[in-house]
Simulated assay, not measured.
Amino acid sequence: MTTQIHVSRFPSPVGLLSLATVDNHLVHLDFEDHEDRMHKLQTRRFRQPEWQEQPHSAPKAITEWLEAYFAGVIQPLPWSQIRLTGTEFQQQVWQGLTGIPAGEHRSYRALAETLGNPKAVRAVARANALNPVAILIPCHRVIGADGSLTGYAGGLERKAWLLDHEARNLKGV
């Protein structure tokens, strides 16, 4: 059976976002100019999926969350509308990312220590890079140990914008 992946677009201050859904659950959120990443990761996951452009196919709870976020309000994540697939370790890292408050950031080492695995810095960085739902799971809040902005699938300019947006509008949330 072929998996149908529906893709819709969401306009944001950091560019057009691509939202991929399967059975009315978000499986991937990425920047439109990085859609090849989305296709690569989800094709690995679903084995020869059928991609279909379908406006407004993303769950309403997801688009409402994004609208609120870009308006400066953090709401609880609509977990029931998100379908994450990854190893147990990746799931732990992604859950750990959601524990970093808006307006703050952590180093890969600090995140590894928080997860109780201080030697797993590189594995944490890799799991962070494979986060399939950017912005919702805030992988942009992880920076280098020296405080520098490091790797972000959407590009460092977007990462800087997101961190600045959160520092100005969402601190302490």
Rank of each mutant, 00 (worst) to 15 (best):
F31K: 02
P101T: 08
D30W: 14
Q48D: 14
M38S: 07
G72M: 00
H56P: 03
H25V: 04
F70S: 01
M38Q: 10
K60I: 15
D33Q: 13
H34P: 01
Q48W: 14
S57E: 04
I74H: 05
S80P: 11
F46M: 03
W65R: 06
Q48E: 15
L19F: 13
G99E: 11
S18K: 14
A68R: 02
P55K: 05
L16V: 13
W94R: 02
S80G: 11
G99N: 10
G72I: 02
Q81T: 14
E53D: 05
L41C: 11
T114W: 15
H25A: 04
Q48L: 15
Q95P: 03
E113S: 12
G99F: 11
E50H: 15
E88H: 11
A68C: 04
G86C: 03
W65N: 02
R106P: 01
D36M: 13
Q81A: 14
G86D: 00
E64K: 11
Q52T: 06
R37S: 08
M38I: 11
R109A: 10
H25R: 09
E67K: 06
D23L: 07
T63G: 01
F46A: 03
D23V: 08
D36S: 13
E50K: 11
S107H: 05
P59K: 03
R47S: 10
E88A: 12
G96L: 07
G15Q: 11
Q95C: 05
Q48Y: 12
V14W: 13
D36I: 14
G96S: 06
G103A: 00
A20W: 11
D36P: 04
R45K: 08
A20Y: 12
H34L: 10
P13W: 12
W51F: 06
W65F: 09
N24Q: 11
F89T: 04
S107N: 03
T98S: 01
G103Q: 01
T63H: 01
A110H: 09
Q75L: 14
T98F: 05
M38E: 10
L16M: 15
S12G: 01
F46R: 00
R106Q: 08
D33F: 15
P101H: 08
L19N: 03
E32A: 10
L84K: 02
I82K: 04
Q52K: 08
T21D: 06
Q90D: 09
W94C: 01
I74K: 06
H34I: 09
P76L: 13
R47F: 12
W79N: 10
G96H: 07
R83L: 13
F89R: 00
